[in-house]
Design a protein around this nucleic acid. Structure first.
Lengths: 298, 298
DNA sequence: GACACCCATAGCCCGAAGTTATAGGCGCAT
DNA sequence: ATGCGCCTATAACTTCGGGCTATGGGTGTC
């Protein structure tokens, strides 16, 4: 069975007819017809019964399809990797971060890095953590950065720094005299919730639940920066990671460390098997410094 | 990347040179050279550096290979399934059992089945349990039979009967007056051990250890029938499953149920996804009856 | 310098798979 | 019944991947 035959069989099986399959595969219908007929002839048995002009998968087809799906997925990933490797060998540095990093840390790090390395070329993405893992595995990116990422097969982690949660409030909240703030101080204030999928969202949720506090939610959002913008507009208060809290985007905001402190790691991610290019290594170091500088800022 | 290119890359990477790869693939060296060159040209980067006439995989190749291995395994299995399905559709009933069944139960069941179904065609194998699972998954066989098989993804089980361990001894052992026998009665008798991989071997080993008895081993073997033959030759005594104990092959043997009884299941195995042919279903029923008849025999 | 290996290229051939054009079966609606 | 929309199959032609043999040119070894 040739790979093409596998592809065609897969398409015909999933899309129900040769005509549909041909459309999906971007080839003519007779081509599909011929490839399939050829495959059947080589296999020595029919894959579909042609009854009243329709295709009915034979029992053999059902069984084959099960295995074909596996092959298909793998080949699909392989092809992605194959083309992604090309971009990598072209000397690009491909970086991605979860939204908190993608909107501020990465752009700043890249801009300053390019001052000393003007020839470097970047690709930047903001991805959620699970997408970030996929991108690394497919070699679509070289370096990732995220909060408290779980251990994953084939992914190497390196902790850059620890950070903590901050409370963000509008200037008019009357909180700006304080040094720090506890969850108790937040009762009865309109609160902007984070329904984040990542480990940080979970940690924050656990923390609030453990304190037996039910904030008075006025809005929900996915990303910390949106929450911050809502706070700046006077919609309420929120709790964000330190990176988002310290980002330059700002209105009239107060930012106070949450007490007791809830800490988490800021972690670099890369593939475990493939070494980084020289340029990527340099950038990795630079990015580490940037993150520390941001956290150390007054 | 075409499948052939993947195959060639895989072979060159694993066998270190195009010449070796060509030999393994049973094609000429120039053919390999061309396919590989073509693949590299399409990918847009080199897979091997040609340095001093030798091939050194590039970093890209190392990464690709990792994924290629997965594809390769899947395609390999797919191809097996594809050809195995052909034999299935030819109307054959393909059966396998662990050695205890393959040497006696299956042949007898097939012989009697063919008396009422003279047109049926069989393939019989004796396989160890793990091989039996593989054979089922690759559709190399339709039906399997084994003792106490563990639950497995994609494999449907059906218990036929329960059986127990029997002690086998030579007529001259002076044991033939008894009704049953305990492990204690076996102390100080030469014992033939089973280093079986299957669940039954493990169960027996656990049982003996739990009784804190250290038999005086005089021989080790893999299969119960060999142990039985050794007993018949006067080499010692052994413990076997009930099926082997009741098999017609015999010399001057005494066979006594072990007390306390250790029971286990006799189980039919088939794929969970694919329905059996009509003939195979009939045989499955017949096989169940045969097993019960053998166990019920006086 | 002869020899053993290794890879690449050239010229040739075949088969898989793409194209367009066309024919034909089935179901449904006018 | 006739036509229309859906489907698949066949024919004739083109393209290209991948196979072959023959051959030449490096590299390392005795």
């Amino acid at each position: 069975m040739r790979l093409r035959q596998i592809e065609v069989f897969h398409a015909v099986y999933t899309y129900g007819s040769m005509t549909n399959a041909a459309a999906v595969l971007n080839v003519s219908q007779p081509s599909v017809s011929k490839v399939l007929a050829h495959a059947e002839q080589q296999l020595g048995y029919r894959l579909f019964d042609r009854v009243k002009g329709k295709l009915i998968p034979t029992p053999e087809a059902h069984q084959l399809f099960h295995h074909v799906e596996n092959v298909y997925e793998d080949v699909d990933r392989l092809r992605h990797v194959a083309v992604n490797l090309k971009a990598a060998s072209a000397g690009r540095i491909r970086v991605a971060g979860t939204p908190a990093f993608g909107l501020e840390v990465l752009p700043r790090a890249i801009a300053t890095f390019r001052e000393s390395h003007p020839d470097s070329v970047f690709e930047i993405e903001t991805l959620h953590l699970d997408e970030l893992y996929d991108a690394l595995r497919e070699s679509r990116i070289d370096i990732g950065i995220a909060f408290d990422p779980a251990e994953q097969q084939g992914i190497k982690r390196k902790n850059l720094a620890r950070a903590q949660f901050y409370v963000l409030a509008h200037d008019s909240s009357g909180l700006d005299g304080k040094d720090s703030i506890s969850l108790d101080d937040l009762r009865d204030r309109p609160f902007i919730g984070l329904n984040s999928r990542g480990p940080l969202g979970q940690a924050l949720k656990d923390f609030i639940e453990a304190a037996h506090i039910e904030p008075q939610f006025v809005a929900w959002t996915e990303t910390y920066h949106v929450a911050k913008a809502l706070v700046a507009s006077g919609a309420g208060i929120t709790i964000t990671d330190e990176i988002t809290a310290r980002s330059r985007f700002a209105g009239d905001l107060v930012m106070l460390p949450l007490q007791p402190a809830v800490e988490f790691d800021i972690t670099l991610l890369q593939r475990a098997d493939a070494p980084l290019s020289l340029a990527a290594k340099k950038f990795r170091t630079h990015l580490g410094k940037c993150v520390k500088a941001i956290l150390a800022a007054d």
